[in-house]
Amino acid sequence: MARKTTEKPRRTSPGAAAPPPAPAALPAAEGGIRPWHLLMMATALALAAGVFATRGTSPVNAVAIAVAIGSVAWVAAAVARTVAPLVAPELGEQTEMVGGRTRAALDREKFLVLRSIKEVEFDRAMGKISVGDFDEMEGRLRARAAGLLRQLDADRSGYRALIERELSTRVGRVPHAGPPAALSPADPVVPLGTCPDCGVANDADARFCKSCGARIEAAR
């Protein structure tokens, strides 16, 4: 039952059940004409005019003109890209910083350390590393991986809040104005890899939970 009430305001026509700000925000974001639509139309018109103007000359000429017009459109888009951040209200930092690094960087680092461990193991199997060195190297890499995992997990709460804040601004919903159930853990859209038992977020391809050890795949 709870599921239905959370789904409804999104799917059905905005009006009765939804909170007042939503209907005003949604159509503007989804249905209106955006500046880039105008740019595309202008480019298409200019292309047509350019090709028309080069009638009678060689087709090479028409192609060259078309390329020139295309590049001018690109220039216009880039100008907009340059000016927009200056006139828009100053954005808050959107990605979370964990220990001075972006979360994405840490995730990538973790992925690479894990791969390095595999490489070292492979080298060992190939007889390229002596046992002692292998233990030392692998120990160091494992320690580093564990440190990274801890670092990533420690900031999970902040990350979650950030996602929710961003989600609410994107969807156009005033924070906490919508039904509170929308963001509760019972939300049907759980990220891939979330443990069914304890709710800890794991990697998307994880088969077991890193916190409680429960099988994740079985839940899917």
């Binding site: 590049s71 001018v72 690109w74 220039v75 888009a77 880039a78 927009a84 951040p85 200056l86 954005l91």
Partner: peptide
Amino acid sequence: RGLVESGIGAFYLVAALMTA
């Protein structure tokens, strides 16, 4: 952030201008 983003935009703009 605004200034940095604008700088990146200007950087793309250079590519666009050179293409033109």
